[in-house]
């Protein structure tokens, strides 16, 4: 059965770069000619749905009807990939629910492969919870994301067993840091990152202007960074795809 993938982007704490990564994955898929279905679980900031108003669904995980809308859709066979931005406020709720309803097993039975992206922070509990998350969903592809903009944890944390164990995880991606001056430019929800990478650039709504287009320096810096990021996302998604194929071929 051909595999369809659901990319679940999560982190234990806020300001880790979750929504940025969810957006980057979505834009990478769009550049590849796909039309991903997006789910934004952050009902407070609604950032992902702000960037993709026509393809993102806002999900309030405190409501059963919304839980159904999310998981019943994720488990259903589909040809388009899905990206879920799990807000840190619903981190425990989302994964508890995912485990309780047996989402991963049923999704896999129906040809959907869940992939968990876990962004690291500097706090010590990030590593403990990361290990626990990987253990709970050991049948899922688990990608550790080192967002360079978050910096390194303190030395004491780096010497902890949990840190050292988690950092030996094989599937890791690096999210390179973008110059802070330009980082604020790409936060503009009207700026389509996939449109920006097209030649000529496209995707800005009529009447809207992004600072990304205003100077050659900004354009080059953001383009260079996006190329690097897309290369890294492409590498990871390919590894995940190969793993899923190998799992399918594995004798029972």
């Amino acid at each position: 059965m051909p595999k369809n993938f659901t990319y679940i982007v999560s982190s234990l704490h806020g300001r880790a770069g979750k929504t940025l990564l969810a957006r980057l994955i979505a834009d990478y898929l769009i550049l590849r000619g796909e039309s991903p279905d997006l789910f934004d679980t952050d009902t407070v900031e609604k950032k992902l749905s702000g960037c993709f108003p026509s393809s993102a669904t806002l999900i309030d995980l405190d409501k059963v009807i919304n839980q159904m809308q999310l998981f019943d859709t994720l488990v259903a066979p589909a040809s388009a990939p899905r990206v879920v931005d799990v807000t840190h406020r619903s981190f425990s709720k989302f994964f508890h629910l995912m485990e309780e309803i047996g989402y991963a097993e049923e999704a896999r039975e129906r040809g959907n492969e869940p992939v968990i992206f876990y962004l690291l922070n500097r706090e010590a509990d990030t590593y403990t919870r990361g290990l626990s998350l990987r253990e709970h969903f050991k049948d899922c592809s688990f990608v550790l994301v080192d967002n360079e903009a978050n910096g390194r944890p303190e030395r004491a944390v780096q010497l902890s067993v949990d840190y050292m164990t988690l950092m030996r995880h094989d599937l890791q991606m690096k999210l390179p840091a973008l110059d802070p001056m330009f980082a604020t430019v790409i936060e503009d929800p009207y700026l389509s990152l996939s449109g920006f990478m097209q030649d000529p650039p496209a995707g800005m709504p009529p009447g809207k202007v992004s600072l990304a287009y205003m100077s050659l320096e900004a354009r080059n810096a953001i383009r260079g960074w996006l190329k690097q990021v897309n290369g890294e996302i492409g590498r990871l998604l390919e590894m995940v795809r190969l793993r899923a194929e190998m799992m399918l071929r594995r004798p029972l």
């Binding site: 059963v64 159904m68 998981f71 019943d72 309780e100 309803i101 047996g102 989402y103 049923e106």
Partner: peptide
């Protein structure tokens, strides 16, 4: 049946 509701009933 809904996966979510089945999950609630199973638990």
């Amino acid at each position: 049946y809904s996966l979510v509701l089945r999950g609630y009933v199973r638990t």
